[in-house]
């Protein structure tokens, strides 16, 4: 998994997520689950660690389930107070929860096995056709990678400024919403000033090292497809065919629109 070309991983993840949205039937989801489990095993990332990755979206999951469970019309199963639970609701929410979990796991899997640098490189490559439409692909990719480099630095900086203002008696917890919002001004302004200063310095440093846009650049780590990637693409095609077959014919259900 770790050694696959980042382009392969992006395409893989993209097709996988697409498959979750196009079809909605138990067989497809079973295949999708199987596919994901195999991927996780191949990646050698501890399952527990993957499950932990779901934590941040747990609230969203619960909320979606609750809404769909309680507010989907259809055949009534049972009801209490003002809520009615229907068979359709159960179906709908279990699809949704499956879809969300698969989606989060698949994208986590991609980011966990790939360095951000390679991801931006791969995106730059995959988006190249967009150049025809005058999209500045190289610049976008460069922006992404600089952003990735500077986010931790700026988070650190924000933390420092916040503490410095607290040392001057600033209070970020009390008061009403207006007061609270106002209390962030002494953080936001220095943070902006610092971000601009850094941006300026960085631009100079890049210029000093002969940065001149994307034209004529070579790469330390050019993207190269290996045998593993071919295997992965073949598997992907098999998966796609399987899903389409099952989605369209096995249950004779029309594909649900995006």
């Amino acid at each position: 998994m770790h050694r696959l070309d980042p382009r392969t991983k992006i395409v893989l993840t993209f097709v996988y997520i697409l498959s979750l949205f196009i079809f909605e039937n138990p067989a497809v989801y079973a295949v999708a689950a199987l596919f994901l489990i195999i991927e996780i095993i191949l990646s050698r990332i501890p399952i527990l660690y993957m499950v932990k990755g779901l934590k941040p979206v747990a609230f969203l999951l619960a909320f979606t389930v609750a809404v769909n469970l309680l507010f989907t019309g259809g055949q009534e199963l049972f009801s209490f107070w003002i809520f009615t639970v229907t068979i359709e609701g159960i179906k709908r929410s279990s699809y949704l929860i499956g879809r969300l979990i698969f989606l989060v796991l698949a994208s986590n899997l991609m980011t966990l096995t790939t360095a951000p640098v390679s991801l931006t490189n791969a995106l730059e490559y995959l988006m190249r056709p967009l150049k025809l439409f005058k999209v500045p692909v190289h610049e976008v990719a460069m922006m992404m990678s600089i952003a990735l480099r500077f986010i931790p630095i700026l988070v650190d900086e924000a933390n420092k400024i916040m503490k410095a203002q607290m040392a001057r008696g600033a209070d970020f917890d009390s008061g009403n919403i207006i007061k609270k919002t106002k209390s962030f001004v002494p953080i936001i302004i220095p943070l902006f000033v610092s971000a601009f200063r850094r941006a300026n310095n960085l631009a100079q440093a890049m210029e000093a090292r002969c940065y001149n846009g994307g034209e004529g650049r070579t790469r330390l780590n050019p993207l190269k497809y290996r045998r593993g990637d071919v295997v992965a693409y073949v598997l992907l095609v098999i998966y796609a065919v399987l899903i389409v077959l099952m989605g369209c014919f096995l249950f004779k259900a029309p594909p649900v629109a995006l």
């Binding site: 951000p116 640098v117 310095n201 090292r209």
Partner: peptide
């Protein structure tokens, strides 16, 4: 403010790449 790469190697390569 002058390290551009997200890993050391990438940063050192930035000049020659350009």
């Amino acid at each position: 403010d002058q390290i551009i790469g997200q890993i050391v190697e990438e940063d050192v390569a930035f000049g020659p790449e350009n």
